Simulated assay, not measured.
Amino acid sequence: MNNPHPIDTRPLITGDDPAAQTYYQDLVSEYGSPLLVLNGRVLKTRFKALQAALPEVDLYYAVKAHPDPEIIKIIDQLGGGFDIASAGEMSLLLDHKVSGRRTIHTHPIKKDQEIRDGLRFGATTFVIDNVHELKKLVPYRSRVGVLLRVSFRSASAIVDLSKKFGCAPDEVSELVQEANALGIHVKGLSFHVGSQCHDASKHVEAISRCHRLMQEINETANKPLSVLDIGGGFPADYELKGLDIEAFCMPIRAALAELPRDWHLIAEPGRYLVAPSVTSVTTVAGKSMRNGFRWYYLDDGIYGSYSGQLFDHATYPLQVFRDGERMPSIVAGPTCDSIDVVAENIGLPELEIGDLVIGHQMGAYTAATKTRFNSIPDARLVVVDHPQEPPVLVN
């Protein structure tokens, strides 16, 4: 018979850590609970690390990963560009006086109003993947440049982003010809091999294939293709094993070195930058013993900051400041819905009402996909500048 409660194997940190416990308790005392704590120093460190790993590539932050004004402010200060996909994201950037010239509009499917909003905002580079979207741009052809999105599906990616969008590689030449006939300038190609990739092999394959496609087209093109957008897919360390972004990017860097030196290279990082930069702080609001499991009810859950467990297929490492025998436990969120369970059959030392439960690597696709079910207030975002790096578990 199948176990109705398979063991939750996510990384779990238990035991005394007086400095960390005091740090988080002080934040809760000042700002309340639940919280999302944005460590600006970690975000800056991650941005600079990816810049160093891909020195020839301009980084455009994927706003969808966590569209918070404080994150936009930090990326803006670092000189990054922005990958946008909606008028709402444009509005967020407008509030920070970010020029549309520092953006690329990457949603391949757009209403006419979205195109006009983008042009009004100052965006000039749009991504498309089919002839119907090309035709939508005809009225604005003197003001836009196009990147054709190409599909490269990766079996190793946790989230497949080439299922819904992207033309087949053998369709690229025909789309470029159609664009030329319509008087639309194709600047280059783009791809996204999927989110949370285990290795860079699919990036390398996509770069090499796009290189060949662009070279073949440029042999007869009046306006040669010269932009390559390599998308995102740079992973977060949900396993707390330590992530060497330099090693991850080494094969990507080698593949990019084969391209012409005058091509403009773009990437769209989101998860790698913001996941480790944000920590969740929740409080045990209640507890019970039911069917052999200790239940702990938090003041944040699946409908809030932990929404990425449903929508993003992510599992976030947890930390509690208790020690002792680990007993089968269930960690639930605050709503009335039974689906609101953060961790099922996880071995926890006994917790008490008022204890803190810390979620790590919680910056990407968490607050971005939260709901207001039961009209429960959102976790409050608090910005800090703290030297503490995200934890790493040592086996």
Rank of each mutant, 00 (worst) to 15 (best):
A257N: 15
L298T: 06
N218T: 08
S201H: 05
A267K: 05
R271H: 12
L182H: 02
F165D: 11
V278K: 01
I230Y: 03
E258T: 14
T220I: 07
T220L: 05
D262Q: 13
P169N: 05
V284D: 05
L243F: 13
P235I: 09
Q215I: 06
G233Y: 06
K202L: 11
M250V: 02
C249E: 06
K241P: 00
S173E: 12
V204M: 10
S288V: 00
R271I: 11
V176Q: 05
V204H: 07
E219N: 10
V204A: 09
A179Q: 02
T282L: 05
D237T: 05
C210F: 08
T279C: 06
T283N: 03
H192K: 11
P169V: 08
L298Q: 03
G188Q: 08
H211K: 14
G232S: 11
E219L: 12
I217T: 02
G166N: 03
P235N: 05
L243Y: 08
G166A: 06
I245D: 04
C167E: 03
L213I: 14
G286F: 04
Q196W: 02
L259V: 09
D237L: 07
V278H: 00
L182C: 07
S226E: 10
E171T: 02
S277A: 15
K287E: 13
V278N: 00
D170K: 01
P269Q: 08
